[in-house]
Write a protein that binds this DNA or RNA. Structure first.
Lengths: 211, 211
DNA sequence: GCTATAGCAATACGCTTGACTTGCAAATCG
DNA sequence: CGATTTGCAAGTCAAGCGTATTGCTATAGC
């Protein structure tokens, strides 16, 4: 056999070029020729690794969502000791917001895919699948906080989890539109968390709340 | 002079055709020929009323945002008597969420423009300009509610306003992705409002809080 | 050292795109 | 009634698109 190269590595390089274009011009603004040029390769080479444009889109989406998930997971696991639910939630949210240029670029790519997901069933299915897992994880943290007496037991963990996700999503939208500085989004998240965790009580007798 | 037609009326008809396409395929999926076909006119006629594609986009955006603003305004003014701040806020939020097919279509158009605003400076400027006004209106309602002793005076009206806007935005995103039913978004908004308006007090002495 | 083949560049093809040009039908005004 | 001007259809054009094809180059295996 002739020279062998790492196909997945090449595909990842191409995907990263695609992200760069998608972040600045959107997915529809990314022609195969543009992506090849951005990756510094020929159109022929790109097509050697991706049979179709759609295949490239799918791979790049898998790649970036996998990376994002890993980054959040690592960030949480890097917390020292046994972190409080509130710290876990906050670190996740911080990781999601476009607080630095790198994260902003990632969020812009997500927006590009979101715009596609709204119309394209295949992309939509992909975009949907991450949400329940994240919501359940958040809900588990809220539930834990309730048990520790840090959150009002009247609150429904799943609902609070969805509210947090939606809040992060909406704040990100405004931040990407330059309606306010990214740090403002973080401040607002903190304000909401303060409201959520404003339950003053030592863990009282009311621990029998189960549904 | 020969036959006269209402130019603005024609432009509005074309804009509505554009919305229909943008809602299903996105702005980039709307070619001039497609829009003309959707409007039931020839390409030549469309170009007679819009010199360029971009001019059409701008007009259609002005048109739809004007309509949305008017709808919210009318909805609020249609409230009987002197409505409570909470009712005003809730009616605005209900109007913003994609609770029926018509509203969903409108929100999809907004998403299409949002995806463009993120990359295009002109569209972004347009997308930004509505936010401060809406936030100030919301903040005024919250402030009013604080004065009536319905909301904790510790809350910052501007912040709570932004949180509400971001929440509505994020919940709309998830609803458009079919992550959950639209009614679920409303339920979560109500839950958040319940938290915001959970201040139990007759307007006490603590009115001296100013920064 | 010959051959098979992976890796890739180059090019061509069929289509669609936005913009532009041309020309004519109809209707109003002098 | 004829001149004039609006409204619009049809056609053209170059540019750009995704995809497919072709063929060269370099290397690993026999």
């Amino acid at each position: 056999m002739p020279k062998r190269v790492d196909h997945d590595e090449r595909r990842r390089q191409i995907s990263e070029a695609l992200w760069r274009i998608a972040a600045t011009r959107g997915l529809d603004g990314a022609s195969l020729r543009d992506v090849a040029a951005e990756a510094g390769i020929s159109l022929g080479r790109l097509q050697h690794y991706f049979t179709s444009k759609d295949e490239m889109f799918v791979f790049a989406l898998d790649y970036i969502s996998g990376l994002a998930e890993r980054r959040i997971r690592e960030r949480v696991q890097a917390l020292p000791g046994t972190p409080a639910p509130r710290d876990i939630l906050r670190h996740c949210l911080v990781e999601m917001l476009p607080l630095d240029d790198e994260s902003r670029a990632g969020n812009l790519v997500q927006v590009a895919y979101y715009a596609r997901a709204v119309h394209d069933a295949r992309t939509r299915r992909h975009a949907q699948e991450g949400v329940p897992a994240l919501r359940d994880f958040f809900a588990a943290q809220v539930r834990h906080a309730v048990e520790r007496g840090e959150v009002d037991p009247e609150r429904v963990p799943e609902d609070e989890a969805m509210l947090l996700l939606a809040l992060a999503d909406g704040l990100t939208s405004f931040a990407l539109l330059d309606v306010y500085a990214p740090a403002e989004a973080l401040r607002l998240i903190d304000r909401h968390l303060a409201g959520l965790f404003s339950y003053n009580s030592s863990p009282r007798s009311s621990g029998s709340k189960r549904s």
